[in-house]
Amino acid sequence: MLVYYSDVFKKHVPPFRHPEAPDRLDYLVEGVLEAGAVVKEPEMRADAWDLIYAVHDKSYVDYVKRICERGGAEIDGDTYISPGTCDAAALSVSAVANAIDKREVALVASRPPGHHAGFVGRALTAPTQGFCIFNTAAIGALYLGEGVAVVDIDVHHGNGTQEILYAKDLLYISTHQHPATLYPGTGYPEEVGEGRGEGFNINIPLPPEAGDDIYVKVVDEFIIPILRQYNPKLVIVSLGWDAHRDDPLGDLNLSLKGYLYAIDAILKLQKPTVFLLEGGYNRSVIKRGTKALIRLATAGEFAPGEAQTESAPGVYKRFEELAVEVRRYTGRYWRL
């Protein structure tokens, strides 16, 4: 498993104390080195900005570039741009496109994150851009085109990815804390896509405090059956470590065992898979999760170092109610 990393990704620098800060990558790299992975410096592509313009509105991309040139600014209550943001974002897109070209299993250890960024930045009904600038997962998906699947494992719904892919016949599956309880407030089961994309947008909301026992069922009963029917050429995983029980910004109750169960099931499909760093703000979880991911991908070692979490009866009952909703809408298009 190759890990694409550059210090350029740390040049996206907050102007104030912020959970999405450059030191997230320091902990990630520690996990990479402890796992013994190969670290590759990504090469900036000549077409990096063309790939960004192909997905995002030109006026928005130009706006971001102007702010980079002018020294940076806070663009909403959650999201900032610094002088180095544009270089970091363009190199991130380059790394993803290069990994896709090579059809390999890779981790793109970059920032800024992207799954909340829509066509013009703020996506759907979200109040902010949620720390995101350009949607690297969606850019990668549209770069490859037909046959790509995006699986979003983050405590937050990937509203930007949904917006960009909503009318495309490219598979998008998102698991996330129920939108009535957490930003960005979207990601309900009835949001199934439109036009050519109808049926290809799959939202699986989870009740707060959902544990690994619930997540195993989600993987076995929804994610993997749908992926097998779609039979992707390549899988992009928007990987946020913030569904972990120790993350400060979410209320799910997953352990690394739940994460590895999902990742292992995806890897067993034996498709090229590109993991992108999205959320995750507990630095220890980032480090330990990255190490466990790499050991699983390179040596088949399933070693989460944490016991499986179990959901309280009331939480499990609420999940069963939500699962009925997911089946009602998703079952129109996929055998479940």
Rank of each mutant, 00 (worst) to 15 (best):
E43N: 14
M44A: 13
R45M: 11
R45Q: 10
R45D: 12
A46E: 15
A46F: 03
A46T: 06
D47K: 03
D47L: 09
D47Y: 06
A48F: 09
W49M: 15
W49T: 13
D50L: 12
D50H: 10
D50I: 06
D50S: 14
L51D: 11
L51P: 12
Y53Q: 04
Y53I: 02
V55P: 12
V55I: 14
H56V: 01
S59G: 04
S59L: 09
Y60S: 02
Y60H: 04
D62Q: 13
D62T: 12
Y63L: 08
Y63N: 11
K65W: 13
K65F: 09
R66S: 14
R66K: 15
I67W: 07
C68R: 05
C68A: 08
C68S: 10
C68K: 08
R70Q: 15
R70L: 15
G71A: 13
A73R: 11
A73P: 03
E74V: 15
E74G: 14
I75A: 11
I75K: 05
D78F: 01
T79K: 00
I81Q: 00
I81G: 01
I81T: 01
S82N: 01
P83E: 09
P83V: 07
G84L: 08
T85N: 07
C86P: 05
C86Y: 02
D87G: 04
A88H: 04
A89F: 07
A89W: 05
A90I: 07
A90Q: 14
L91I: 03
L91N: 05
V93I: 14
V93P: 05
S94D: 04
A95K: 04
A95W: 06
A95N: 10
A95T: 07
N98D: 14
N98R: 11
I100A: 12
I100V: 15
D101R: 10
D101T: 00
D101Y: 00
K102L: 00
K102S: 05
K102A: 02
R103G: 03
E104S: 03
A106L: 03
A106H: 01
V108G: 11
V108L: 10
A109C: 15
S110P: 09
S110A: 15
S110G: 14
P112W: 01
P112H: 03
P112C: 05
P112D: 05
P112G: 07
P113M: 04
P113D: 05
G114L: 01
G114S: 03
H115Q: 08
H116E: 03
A117V: 09
G118D: 11
G118C: 11
V120N: 12
V120E: 12
V120I: 10
G121L: 10
G121I: 05
G121S: 12
A123F: 01
L124N: 13
L124D: 13
T125L: 09
A126P: 06
P127M: 06
P127A: 13
T128V: 03
T128K: 00
T128S: 12
T128Q: 00
Q129D: 00
G130Q: 09
C132S: 14
I133L: 08
I133F: 02
I133N: 02
F134A: 00
A137I: 07
I139N: 10
A141G: 10
A141V: 12
A141N: 11
L142C: 08
Y143M: 13
L144G: 00
L144K: 12
G145C: 06
